[in-house]
Each structure stands twice: as C-alpha cells, then as structure tokens.
Amino acid sequence: MNSDSEVFSLHINGVVREVTDSWLGESLLDVLRDRLGLLGVKGACEQGECGSCSVMVGDSLLCSCLVMAASAVGEPIVTIEGLTPEETLSDVQAVFVEAGAIQCGFCTPGLITAVHDLLDRIAIPTDSEIREELAGNVCRCTGYGRIIDAVQQVAVRRADSSDGAL
C-alpha cells in the first residue's frame, strides 16, 4: 500500500510463501494473519506477554508479535496450521479436546504449539517444568488445571507407545 513495501519469501509449514505487500518492520504476527491468512495464529496483547501468537521459527518457540517478519526469512516457520496434515489432530490436539483443556479456545493454538515444543525437548516434564515452560502462555478461562493434565496425559501416552515399540 505504500512505497516502503517489501517483497520477501517465508518458509511456512513446508511451503514457500511470497509476501508482496508487507511494510518494513511489520510483525510476523501481522504478516501471518493479515497478509497470508494464517488465522490460527492469534494476537491478544502484542507485547510478548500472552503467548497466543506462539509459532516455531527454526528450533525456537517465539512470540510472533515480537518478531519482524522479514527477520524470519530463510527459517522454517511452523504455525498451528502446520503441526499436522490438514483435518487431522496431533496427539496434543486430541488430548486437549478430550481432557477439557479448551474453553474459549483463544489461547489454544499458541499453547498447543508450545506444548509440542515442550514435549519435544522434555519427554516427561515434571509439574514444575510444565508450569515454568508454559508460563509465557496465558489462559484466562481454564485456570490451567486441565491443560497441565492434558500435557501429562500426552507425555504418558508417548512413553507408553515408545515402550510398546521396543
């Protein structure tokens, strides 16, 4: 819309997406949502406080509201839409639904992204580790109890199924 427009490409959910109309310095959150239509990424504070906008950039879980989109060029970006093939649920997603970890659901995409990241790094997190690792994701509805329960259930299921595979 103005002369400061930038053209660059982002690797998002395994696909190269061209961003043609972004302005210099536009946040990754705004580019993902408003330019590329990835509406599963949510914004609720735009100050890095709530975690609703969490996405994976390379190996890091980041608040997309705090990152300039242009700075993510060349890094693989994974949003909630790219966690699983379309129409399917990951184990974390399925357990969130079953375990009552979702009420309004606004925090959910960011949280589920964060939980995948957590369980990839720490297979069987303690209660303290879950709380500390997820402390950047605010949920106003659930009081967190069912979410912690869901994370533990996934960890146990993964451990059980890898035991079974041995």
């Binding site: 509406l39 949510k42 909630i80 839409e81 699983t84 649920l89 979702i102 995409p109």
Partner: peptide, 13 residues
C-alpha cells in the same frame, strides 16, 4: 468433548 473442540485445537475456529 466440546463440539467445537477440534476446530479450536486446530486453529480453524
């Protein structure tokens, strides 16, 4: 489970 649970978990709600 909530009828809107899958969509909320997938970010498509």
């Amino acid at each position: 489970p909530r009828p809107d649970g899958d969509a909320k978990a997938q970010g498509s709600f």
